[in-house]
Design a protein around this nucleic acid. Structure first.
Lengths: 211, 211
DNA sequence: GTCTATATTTCGATAGAC
DNA sequence: GTCTATCGAAATATAGAC
């Protein structure tokens, strides 16, 4: 009896994972309304009714996908804390964000799609978790400024700049690859792009030596 | 007879304009598949059948909207040419891009949506016009580097950085406003953000005085 | 050129046999 | 837990009167 329960729970966990991965890919490519349960089922190699068996509605499935992405974002964001040295903290954060853009393109695209459309489904994430996290990071950056470790700039615009620049490589992959002779960026290009993003931002933050 | 033709042409031009504006707003908010001809008709204050009278299909209407946006982008991009001084040229370009983000949010969002989804409808723009324009601008920036006017960085990543940072304020308006206590950015905030973007990028490009 | 009514297709969701 | 068949609700597009 106990074994049966465990086996069934295992099947459920595995199928949910397969469907979530399939849904992320489809939602990233076609948006919420552009994606059909049939497409997701095909991507997962399951009959459409099975998808409905595990996720009651398309909306619930979508929300689970977005939740998953948001978790990864917040987790990476913690790297911000790990150093009191602004150069180190920013380098680590930019590197992590670029790494997520490289490895989790679909997640980033679903998020972008959702925000562009006014976040009809995940507004609560923006209002609660993201607002809290952002306010905390702004305080940290402001402290760096007060300590004259970086130039006085508005910390908020700096954060947006890092988000925009790093996520661009995930959200606009298709444009980036088209402009790269229809080829994905090579390992060297990813490293070079990451280094350039960090270098420009950091050089733009260093306090003027003469001041 | 001639007058009648002119009058009808006028009616057509005006109605097409009304429908295009309505469609841009709806497509920006709901994406291609999320938008219905009924929504567009309501936004334009016209019966649905009239929209079909002027635009044979939803796809044709969408393509016209994206074409319009792309024209505005390319036009603004010319400001890049107007100065041989990198600081001036970059400042003007960033200011223009931020101005478009402020005034033409919907256009930018439709474009972003389209690229995220793999540009199924406007791939030819990416392959032709955008590739040409980008290659030309990369040459210009490379010349600045050769002339030691700016530090040696990969010009392509610099362009992407400018695009990403400026368009973020249009595409992610909803997130930016949620993080701004649900208020649109004030005139002062727009100016401050623009200045910060330019300052960080430019300071990150100036050649080291000691080298 | 305008607009009501409707044909046709597609999709989300469920029933019910296995 | 799986899967076929199908319902009911939209949505695109068009026919045809004005």
């Amino acid at each position: 009896m106990g074994n049966l329960k465990v086996a069934k729970a295992h099947i459920r966990a595995e199928n949910e994972r397969i469907i979530l991965d399939a849904a992320e890919a489809i939602f990233a490519r076609h948006g919420f309304r552009g994606s059909t349960m049939q497409m997701i089922a095909d991507q997962a190699n399951l009959p459409k009714a099975n998808v409905h068996y595990y996720f009651a509605s398309k909306k619930e499935l979508y929300r689970r996908v977005v939740e998953q992405i948001f978790g990864i974002w917040l987790q990476a964001a913690n790297s911000f804390e790990q150093s009191d040295n602004p150069a180190e903290a920013l380098r680590r954060y930019i590197e992590q964000k670029m790494e997520i853009s490289r490895l989790r393109k679909n997640g980033s695209k679903v998020w972008a799609n959702e925000v562009i459309n006014g976040a009809p489904i995940i507004q609560d994430f923006l209002e609660n978790q993201l607002t809290e996290w952002t306010d905390g990071r702004i305080e940290m950056i402001q402290k760096w400024i007060d300590d004259k470790k970086i130039r006085p700039i508005n910390p908020r615009w700096l954060l947006y700049m890092i988000w925009a620049t790093t996520q661009h490589y995930a959200d606009f992959t298709h444009q980036v690859e088209t402009l790269n002779a229809a080829e994905p960026l090579s390992k060297e290009q990813w490293e070079d792009a990451t280094e350039t993003v960090f270098q420009i931002i950091w050089a733009g933050l260093v306090p003027k030596s003469g001041t």
